[in-house]
Design a protein around this nucleic acid. Structure first.
Length: 500
RNA sequence: GCUCGCGUGGUGUAGCCAGGUCCAUCAUUACGGGUUUUCAUCCCGUCGACCCGGGUUCGAAUCCCGGCGCGAGCACCA
């Protein structure tokens, strides 16, 4: 067969379904260097997870290097938040399951950027532009050359030193990369590389940086230079930065460097959340509209973790989406289904009765019963309930029928406040309900989020000793996380609302 | 306006570069059924898609041209 039609065999091989992420272009095992570069103007959110997951997964795949880089070069528009440096490192480790191989902070590297700026001016492929933003826009749109462009290299160096010395105010001077004012894409025409910032009025939050510098690189310059310095081989990022790549390539050509391979993903929205921004969240958190950054209504990684979303679920979620350039909108149900798969096998079962109603048990009841901690895993042991008090709690919603089966126990017939025991064996189709023995429970609040509000249901939970952070499954209700204050928070929202 | 990118079932996704075994993959959702002393897990099944119009070709989801739709960039933000 192979001899008769080799091309058919070859074709079939190509069409085999690909497992996981596609191969990287020009990737050599052990030599791939990737990075993820957030602005620490707040903790990481859902969308950041994509960059972390994709890049770190390639790091594993190629046994390469993964760099976490803080792009903290703006002190006014999107000022960094001091706490975020620490929390981003923690969130990164939580999500990708290891520390980054290297951490780089842009604000520690200003002198490097200065050197390259100087090189650029001396090499004649950059210039200090003293046009206002409005003036330059006219040139950009009109494809005309601005007067500053013709300055000699020496003049540019003099002006550069004046910038450093604080001769100019923010807005009065900027360093531009000389590209070509007639480029088809207006975004690329003599783009700005470094600018002035009033760091007296807007100091950098890191004490070691504070007001030390007034000249700061812009993203495209900082990122380009740093990628080169760190030996980054592959850049995988959002497609909103496609023009960034084009700008940076032009700079790389000037420097004689070769640009990394690039890949992009499209925009992602979540049905339930719509659009959100770190800046807006920061305002809302600071205005105390939310209970901190880990408020379960927020799309931050902290909040997701607090909601009981496992990092493995987040990883498989983003890996499933892959790196297509399509702009998509996904429902949370997709994330939840990943989470269920991760969590179900190990979530101990627990009973929670919402708005409990007490009945007295009548009949020949054993003094105690035992029920499995997990129905599919006997090794997780049993929970033992005492029935000494003969008092049981049922959920109001379940009382429409008078003949019920108490889960893992016995049939009962309800009459007024009496529950008369029937068969211990199951021998009819009466509904099975969850219930509690009053010997084995305590008051508890069950919280859940819905429509950007936190709701709660009062009830009784089976006595347990699970520590904060444990994901349990409330039988017939859903997965929940044991909270620090001993309340429970539903992982996948909704539910619990029937009696609320 | 200029520039760039993207359009496969309800939602995602594979296939597209190297056209045929694609009456299109897998997952998820919804619905139905089975297992189960949970409305969980697990298993089975059903519904459901190549943006439109031309062209090339024996043959187009795949290549070409044109349209339409959506998104992003054109910041001294990242």
């Amino acid at each position: 067969m192979a001899n008769e039609a080799p091309e058919l065999l070859q074709k079939r091989e190509v069409k085999v379904r690909r497992e996981g992420l596609p191969d990287l272009e020009n990737a050599e095992h052990g030599k791939v260097v990737l990075r993820f570069a957030p602005n620490p103007n707040g903790p990481l959110s859902f969308g950041h997870a994509r960059g972390l997951v994709i890049n770190s997964t390639y790091r594993e795949k190629y046994d390469g290097t993964f760099i976490l880089r803080f792009d903290d070069t703006d002190t006014k528009v999107k000022p960094p938040m001091l706490d975020a440096y620490r929390s981003i490192e923690e969130e990164t480790e939580w999500l990708i399951g290891r520390k980054p191989d290297r951490v780089v902070i842009a604000s520690d590297r200003i002198e490097e950027y200065y050197q390259h700026a100087m090189q650029m001016l001396e090499g004649g492929f950059g210039y200090v532009c003293r046009c206002s933003a409005e003036e330059f826009k006219v040139h950009r749109v009109g494809m005309t050359i601005c007067p500053c462009r013709g300055q000699s290299n020496e003049d540019n160096v003099v002006l550069w030193n004046s910038m450093l010395k604080g001769v100019f105010k923010p807005g009065d001077a900027v360093v531009r990369v000389k590209t070509d004012m007639t480029l088809k894409n207006p975004a690329l025409r003599d783009w700005p590389a470094l600018r002035l910032q009033d760091t007296k009025a807007h100091p950098h939050p890191r004490p070691s940086v504070a007001s030390n510098y007034i000249v700061w690189p812009l993203l495209d310059f900082q990122s380009a230079v740093e990628d080169h310095l760190q030996g980054v081989t592959h850049i995988i990022r959002g497609k909103d930065l496609m023009d960034s790549t084009r700008k940076q390539k032009l700079l790389y050509e000037h420097f004689g460097w070769s640009y990394p391979e690039t890949m992009y993903w499209g925009r992602v929205k979540v049905h339930e959340w719509g659009g959100f921004s770190t800046s807006q969240m920061r305002k809302d958190v600071e205005a105390e509209l939310y209970d901190g950054w880990s408020d379960p209504r927020l799309p931050t990684l902290q909040a997701l973790k607090m909601r009981g979303i496992d990092s493995k679920a987040l990883r498989s979620f983003w890996l499933e989406l892959g790196i297509t350039q399509k702009d998509i909108s996904v429902p949370l149900a997709t994330l939840y289904s990943h989470n269920t798969k991760v969590v179900d096998g190990t979530a101990p079962r627990l009973t929670f009765v919402r708005h409990p109603i007490t009945f007295t048990l009548e009949g020949e009841a054993p003094s105690e019963i035992s029920l499995p901690v997990h129905p599919n895993d006997a090794s997780m042991g049993v929970r033992t309930w005492s029935l000494g008090s003969k008092e049981i709690l049922l959920e109001g919603e379940d009382l429409e029928k008078m003949d019920l089966r108490l889960k893992e126990f016995a049939d009962v017939a309800l009459n007024d406040t009496i529950a008369s025991m029937g068969s211990m064996e199951r021998n009819d189709k009466r509904p099975i309900v969850h219930w509690l023995s009053s010997d084995q429970c305590r008051e508890c609040i069950l919280r859940y989020t819905k429509d950007n509000e936190i709701h709660h249901v009062n009830g009784q939970v089976e006595t347990h000793a699970y520590t904060a952070g444990t994901i349990v499954q409330l039988e017939r209700i859903g997965y929940a996380r044991v909270m620090e204050d001993d309340s429970l928070l539903l992982c996948h929202e909704d539910h619990g609302e029937e009696n609320a």
